[in-house]
Design a protein around this nucleic acid. Structure first.
Lengths: 328, 328
DNA sequence: CCGTCCTCTGAAACGCGTTTCAGAACTGAA
DNA sequence: TTCAGTTCTGAAACGCGTTTCAGAGGACGG
């Protein structure tokens, strides 16, 4: 593999001049520029990005740490980040944390050693907040708001409004006995959706009914089973997210309930599967693409020393599909 | 950020000695070793991976290029690769090619410049085969077999057997009018599944019935609609993959067909959604985890100069779930 | 024609961990 | 006691693109 010195020799100039031609940083005499370009073409020279990054102390790598790439939500997020990154000539180093604080820590460490330009992370652990603060890198927390990391930027969607919209919609659809499959309260998404739900309940004088439920399919199955025995007269369910909505549907339909005739279901996230599923899920849309793009932009601004918003709460909306139905 | 020279100064030794202590490459006097370790602890020194990689000409990065991370199959594959890579202290640089040869090319180029240790790629283009051959990096093609790249290693599953199993199973389940949603013949998966299908058809003297269908959901919808009008008496469908099976189910159930009572469906891949879906999909299992792990292992062996198998065809199996049903 | 200023260019230093090479210090055999 | 053989260590070179700095050459006002 040709190096810049090989090219320089061939073109009869110094390595510095080759570098200047490649980067267009300084004017170079047309004649020499021509020679350099020809030499580059002849040797097929491609600069070694490691050498460049070593000097510049920046590798144009953005680290993405998610609990699990297989989870559709995270994986759509990763996709969004990748797209925006590629557009800006950044690369994505993808890390799975498995919700393991230890592995998260290792990954952050590794990214720092790789001189990553920033980290986009979905973490549950407030401890990680500390590590983040220490690692000297621009970090954006996505879909979470850490309690003890005043400095760290975050991007999430308006869960409070989302919670409100979900209940309101079920009420509009004629549901009277609504159960809220409540996501984890130690996550801002779980907490604020719940608060939104409470707000509407009290506004309508409706009694709260909820079952705690993690964000994964398996726990969705469990919660749905529990729901059927505990609240057999339920006619509306707010699932903690789309995966749980899908699990709930499976249990319900297995028990002979018809959706939406007997029970209506609404999810959160609007993952791709929410509309590939049969029936298509009514859900609260999180702007995943926007969240990913914004996270990348924040890191870039951070790098360039430009000002940026630390707290980013993106708007949500609701899409009515086949698991809910307005009367009349 | 402390450098190795800072540590050396603090410990009163040379940088070389610090390096030796860190890597354990050469014996170092216990006394000095102790001093070095203490200095490392005090400074919080972490070696700059870029500098290390620059010298070693290897960054312990494995590039993964897939057409689309959002596709469940690729994303489970990426997950598998990440896991095996992490176990071996490799990192994953994830690239989306969008089935765009140009972008694929750019990504390969970039990975070469980053001194990646290898590339794991899912590509459709035989042109890319040429680029791969030129890029000087260990490359493993997954889920594909390129026609013109005799040198490149590949890992795929036994599509031929898979095709046979799928038809055989439907026949065992009593289907008489089976339609094969045939994947693209320019991909080995499409071609060999089809050949397996043909083999069994001719064995049973059954007439071939197929409709061409890409591997994505949208084309699955289209093909399923076509299927209903073209072959209204169909009682068994082999979908080109699980996504298409899911699309097919949607169209069928929308038309009032019951699955599996009226029509049975079998998919390929066994993506996670195949069993989260309602009804759970009968499908031919591709060992995605194994494929990912094997691909990583091949790259490692390649790097270490160890011998490895160029052609890897992994066994498939069939899982019976709710979209097919044996009679009696 | 002279001094000043600007433009272009190359040598050398830089970033930083690793490895080579030669010398120092010590062990052990003769 | 001496020579050979080990073991440990540091200086310097390496990998390679970028940047700094100073010098060379030319332009231009006076």
């Amino acid at each position: 593999m040709a190096s810049i010195r090989d090219v320089a020799k061939l073109a009869g100039v110094s390595p510095a001049t080759v570098s200047r031609v490649m980067n267009g940083t300084v004017n170079v005499d047309d004649d020499k520029k021509e020679k350099v370009l020809r030499a580059i073409r002849e040797t097929g020279f491609r600069p070694n990005e490691l050498a460049r990054a070593l000097y510049k102390k920046s590798s144009r790598i953005i680290g993405v740490i998610v609990p699990n790439i297989e989870n559709p939500f995270f994986n759509e997020l990763a996709r969004a980040v990748e797209e925006e990154a590629y557009r800006n000539r950044y690369k994505i180093l993808l890390c799975n944390s498995n919700d393991n604080t230890e592995k998260e820590f290792m990954n952050i460490q590794m990214l720092a050693q790789m001189k990553a330009d920033g980290i986009i992370i979905v973490t549950n652990s407030d401890n990680t907040g500390q590590v983040i603060a220490d690692c000297q890198l621009p970090v954006v927390v996505v879909d979470r708001r850490l309690t003890n990391s005043g400095q760290t930027a975050y991007v999430e969607s308006d869960h409070y409004k989302g919670g409100q919209m979900a209940v309101s919609h079920l009420i509009e659809c004629g549901c009277r006995n609504i159960v809220f499959l409540r996501g984890p309260l130690w996550l801002s998404s779980g907490l604020w959706r719940y608060r939104g739900y409470q707000e509407i309940c009290s506004k309508y004088g409706m009694q709260e009914r909820w079952i705690d439920c993690q964000y994964d399919y398996e726990d969705g199955l469990r919660a749905a089973r529990e729901l059927i025995t505990q609240y057999p007269d339920t006619d509306g369910i707010i699932a903690s997210n789309d995966m749980v909505a899908i699990a709930t549907y499976k249990i319900l339909s297995g028990q002979g309930y018809r959706v939406p005739e007997d029970v209506q279901i609404i999810g959160f996230d609007n993952i791709r599967f929410s509309w590939l599923f049969t029936p298509e899920l009514t859900t609260v849309i999180q702007p995943i693409m926007d969240m990913g793009a914004l996270a990348v932009q924040i890191i870039m601004k951070h790098r360039q020393g430009l000002p940026f918003q630390k707290e980013n709460i993106l708007d949500v909306s609701l899409v009515e599909r086949q698991t809910t139905k307005r009367k009349g």
